[in-house]
């Protein structure tokens, strides 16, 4: 050390003692980290590639790791697959508002099928109780709680991801952790999402959900039929959303919300196939999309069929 620095040595020493105290204080400040669950911070997670850049072997390794994680956590062996889209298929949904009775069975079937967190409970479908004569969502009641539905002065409008063809959530994602698949389903790579929630801000249908805490699912409620891009369990800090149950629908089955619907208000199928039920509805019924003015081109259509429950008996 050169002589010119000696002048401030005393005060510097004083500072050094302070610095030592500082290190201790920083250690104390960081003490909550001892409770950190590090199972999600392994090298294999850290080095994992983006979904679109993974080779088949990479994917197999990742699927195996996910299966092991689920097994360790929930004590059952799941079947985790990477279910690919079918060629030349474009999925769409049509919902008959004339039939929906607002029972919310779809909401709960969705949670059970897709391994959403039960505490706090994450739901992809929100059912609005709407006054007759308006489709303005701001007039809807989100928290209606009646002993019996439907109420004869209202109709019911379930809202979930509209799987837009020009999806704003996909556009805004800074890291391409979410994208639209060739069959029209917008998916999230839960292992790539950084959790900035920009997509949640951008969605005009409030269809995206964030894991604010580590999801909790009782072991007995786990659905062991899992896909990488849909219902495998998520961790805290990432986005998730409705995927039209792609692990079912890409294999010819119907989404869980449709299967459970007691009144047959829900219809799902392939738009590219002119004979499919959903294509027929689009051709024959007077369908509309919600918030057409935002021009995100939803693949989720609503319509009111003739057999609107005017008659009290049918309403039950």
């Amino acid at each position: 050390m050169s002589p010119q620095d000696n002048v401030s040595r005393r005060s510097f020493l004083r500072g050094s003692i302070g610095a030592a105290g500082g290190v201790a204080a920083v250690a104390a400040a960081l003490s909550p980290l001892k409770d950190l669950d590090t199972s999600d911070f392994t090298m294999s997670h850290f080095l994992q590639k983006h979904y679109k850049e993974m080779s088949e072997e990479d994917m197999q390794e990742v699927l195996e790791r996910i299966a092991k994680e689920v097994e360790k956590r929930h004590h059952l062996r799941p079947e985790v697959r990477d279910v690919k889209p079918m060629d030349g298929v474009e999925f769409a949904y049509a919902l008959n508002l004339g039939k929906c009775i607002g029972c919310r069975k779809c909401v709960h079937a969705c949670v059970a099928e897709n391994n959403q967190s039960r505490s706090p409970e994450i739901q992809y479908i929100r059912v609005l109780e709407m006054p007759k004569g308006s489709i303005d969502v701001e007039k809807g009641n989100h928290h209606y709680d009646r002993p019996k539905v439907p109420d004869k002065d209202h109709f019911y409008m379930p809202i979930q991801c509209h799987q837009c063809a020009d999806a704003p959530c996909v556009k805004v994602c800074p890291v391409e952790a979410t994208w639209t698949e060739p069959d029209g389903i917008t998916v999230v790579d839960y292992d790539w999402c950084i959790g900035c929630r920009y997509c949640e801000a951008a969605c005009p249908y409030w269809a995206r959900r964030f894991n604010f805490s580590e999801p909790e699912i009782p072991d007995k409620d786990i659905n062991p039929n899992m896909a990488y891009l849909s219902n495998r369990p998520r961790h805290k800090g990432v986005m998730e959303k409705c995927t039209f149950c792609l692990h079912r629908t890409r294999e010819g089955k119907m989404p869980a919300c449709l299967e459970v619907c007691p009144v047959g208000a829900r219809h799902f199928g392939d738009l590219a196939d002119a004979k499919s039920e959903v294509s027929q509805i689009l051709q024959k019924k007077r369908v509309f999309v919600l918030k057409e003015d935002v021009k995100t081109l939803p693949r989720f259509y609503y319509y009111f069929d003739e057999d609107y429950y005017v008659d009290e008996k049918e309403a039950r």
């Binding site: 104390a28 003490s31 909550p32 950190l36 959790g195 929630r197 801000a201 959900r209 604010f212 805490s213």
Partner: peptide, 27 residues
């Protein structure tokens, strides 16, 4: 700053549930 660091360590362990943000008001 150290109190802030401590609070962040807490948030890092438990997630953004430690904030007032929700799916409705997400920022």
């Amino acid at each position: 700053a150290l109190f802030g660091l401590n609070a962040y360590a807490n948030q890092f362990v438990h997630g953004l549930i430690t904030t007032g943000m929700t799916d409705q008001v997400s920022w």
